[in-house]
Design a protein around this nucleic acid. Sequence first.
DNA 1: CCACTTTTTGCAAATCTTTCACAACTTCCC
DNA 2: GGGAAGTTGTGAAAGATTTGCAAAAAGTGG
Lengths: 119, 119
Amino acid sequence: MMSNSLYQDSHCVVDFTLARLWVDRRAVTLTRKEYDLLSALTANAGEIVPRGVLLRTVWGYGPDIRTRTLDVHIRRLRRKLGGYGEQYIETIFGVGYRFQPWREPKPFAAEPHMLRASA
Amino acid sequence: MMSNSLYQDSHCVVDFTLARLWVDRRAVTLTRKEYDLLSALTANAGEIVPRGVLLRTVWGYGPDIRTRTLDVHIRRLRRKLGGYGEQYIETIFGVGYRFQPWREPKPFAAEPHMLRASA
DNA sequence: CCACTTTTTGCAAATCTTTCACAACTTCCC
DNA sequence: GGGAAGTTGTGAAAGATTTGCAAAAAGTGG
């Protein structure tokens, strides 16, 4: 059976059966843990996935394990997502992370730092 | 399902019924195990075949057998694939191997993301 | 016995994962 | 605003695992 299940938006494709990722049509190699983590996030794209859930589903860790390995993997995933890492993987402080499907940036909007009066 | 008894791309032909291999129109002699392994890989060309699956289908080994014989055969196959060995048989670290159908190296082509207007 | 094939063995090399120390940031409260 | 406490980001290093490889040993069929 060829159920080609994948996540897809205008910059990023994750193929769960082939275990591969493309960013802007460019194949990106993921390690196993990176892929597991990305899967856990994209499978719930748009929703917050708590740290505890990630640590349990991806690492099999119990609730009382203290580690920074999740953060490190998040950082590597963000990198491999090219320039979009920060946009895709959002940090929910004190809770977890959320993979945010791509949204075209607003055509133009003044950023706060542009608004400072130049003395 | 009419199984095509032939794998074929621009450098490599595997005939499953004759149990033979040609690389660049040159016949290559394979031993039995080499051929079984190549079959298992090319039959799923483009997909990852986990080590465990190879050890089971080609060797009949159970899940708890520790051996490096698979790696040794992979190496010999790569050699017999001429200069293309590394390109054809890809190592998926911690998972298995993948026979990758031949792809012509890109001459040069602008990728979508190169085309975005800068400034 | 001989030629050939296959498996084992023991490192070396490559790769991936986790930890660590500390910087940066968020939140909360006075 | 200005700490204090807790959380996350980060680069580098250590730790653990996997794979590559060469040579030797073991198996196979003539």
